[in-house]
């Protein structure tokens, strides 16, 4: 696991409070992990009256990003922050490597196999069925990929060939 590059500048209790609040916002599609654990939140800063939250997209076209922005505004607004601004930062590009072990365990319990190993960085040929993803129900690695793309941009669909359970797999990128 690699730590997400959350900016450390601008200390103070207020910043920590905001980070803590953001840590309570679940991902709209995968409610067992927070947007902070997912590595979407990059920075929290203050400018005068405004609190500025910098986020990074998971996939370029992920529709959940709009829901996440709305959730951040709603929560911070309700907590008394009068002006909330959202900024998008692209670099460094989001990677599943930032997901902490605790979040991976919760994903597994929820029925989604967490990303395996380090996200590949080679540009060429990736084989889509090269990894034996362990079944989230029985742990067997005798599984097969049913579909390279799943119910959301970040997932693929697998099936266990021992217990026959179908399950989502969070793709490493």
């Amino acid at each position: 696991m690699v730590k997400p590059p959350i900016a450390t500048g601008g200390p103070g209790p207020d910043r920590e409070r905001v980070m803590q609040l953001l840590g309570g916002i679940p991902d709209p599609e995968i409610p067992v992990i927070s947007i902070v654990e997912l590595g979407i939140v990059r920075d929290v800063a203050f400018e005068g009256e405004a609190v500025i939250v910098t986020i990074t997209p998971t996939y370029s076209g992920c529709p959940a990003m709009h829901a996440i922005e709305a959730d951040v505004r709603a929560l911070l607004g309700a907590e008394g922050y009068g002006r909330v601004e959202l900024k998008t930062q692209l670099a460094p590009a989001w990677t599943t490597d930032w997901m902490p072990e605790a979040a991976r365990a919760r994903l597994r319990d929820y029925g989604i196999a967490p990303p395996m190993g380090q996200a590949g960085s080679d540009t060429h040929r990736i084989t889509l069925h090269g990894r034996s993803v362990p079944c989230v129900r029985c742990g067997s690695t005798h599984t097969e990929r049913l579909s390279a793309f799943g119910s959301t941009a970040c997932k693929a669909l697998y099936r266990c060939l021992d217990c026959m359970e179908p399950f989502d797999y969070f793709k490493p990128i």
Binding site: P57, Y59, S60, L90, A91, A93, W94, G120, I126, A148
Partner: peptide, 9 residues
């Protein structure tokens, strides 16, 4: 850098 990951897939 962001798009590279998607295009690989």
């Amino acid at each position: 850098a962001k798009s590279a990951k998607e295009s690989r897939y």
